[in-house]
Design a binder for these strands. Structure first.
Lengths: 140, 140
DNA sequence: ATGTTTTATATGCAAGTGCATGGAATAAGA
DNA sequence: TCTTATTCCATGCACTTGCATATAAAACAT
């Protein structure tokens, strides 16, 4: 039988919170005709990076996304004009993924929907509690 | 630009914790040649239910899983002999999903892998902290 | 320098998922 | 009762993901 210790309940709670939040945010993005969260994550990592440019391998590590999955995501995002894929000068097998102006604009537009949806879904979670959550979750 | 308030960081932390935990557990299950977590969730809900029997609509609500998705999951699980799908006596359009003996055994075997993998992945999260996490996450 | 191993990325194929829709049965309204 | 609306579940189609493997360039070894 499954244990009902608090540790195990924490896992259940994490799952449910994650699901509720992502459902709310994805729903809001879709309703606004905007791309998925995974696209936002890529755009945001690029925007934070120096020169708005990263290698797929670096994105892979930051997003905890499997390689084959990221490869095709980048292909789709390049087709949509949000990023450019160019050959890497110092490594012949590598790519350099660069954020385009369109990509930057799209990320900004997405945040105008994403941010409020997140705030709304987080409900009455106050700042101190949130900080406490972060501290405990990061120890997992 | 994205805000960096604790509330928003909590969302990031929830995501990362959820991803790390589920990757660890799914990996352990796969390595043991066992089905996915979603299968476990169905089996466990059925085992908790009176007569080990629920309607798809009820499962849908408890698992927060979209209808079309659950429909096909149940089809696969029935094909694998873990559940039986029978017509519902009091509602002509409904189904009754019943746990089979094989389903019960499979859930038990899964837990022998799932439980330890979860304990391991939760690391040094102690009981009081876990209880606190549950309380705060459930308020979201 | 040549052969071997590792790293970075892409891709064919199978399986899963989202979306819209369909059909069948019940519930609600006139 | 007869129509209309709603609920429960299934399914065709497109898209996404997982898995294994391919390809090509480095890195390493001899």
């Amino acid at each position: 039988m499954s244990e009902t210790k608090a540790r195990h309940q924490a896992w259940i709670a994490i799952n449910r919170a994650q699901k509720r939040l992502s459902d709310a945010i994805e729903g809001a993005l879709k309703a606004a005709g905007l791309p998925q969260l995974s696209w936002y994550d890529v755009l945001w990592e690029l925007e934070k990076a120096p020169d708005c440019c990263l290698r797929p391998v670096e994105l892979e590590a930051r997003l905890l996304m499997p390689q084959h999955n990221l490869s095709r995501l980048l292909t789709r995002m390049a087709a949509a004009g949000l990023v450019d894929k160019t050959r890497c000068p110092d490594d012949g097998r590598g790519q350099r993924v660069v954020l385009t102006d369109g990509g930057r604009r799209t990320r900004t537009r997405m945040w105008t929907v994403y941010g409020p949806a997140l705030d709304d879904a987080l409900g009455k979670l106050n700042e101190p509690d949130a900080g406490d959550l972060v501290r405990k979750l990061d120890r997992i």
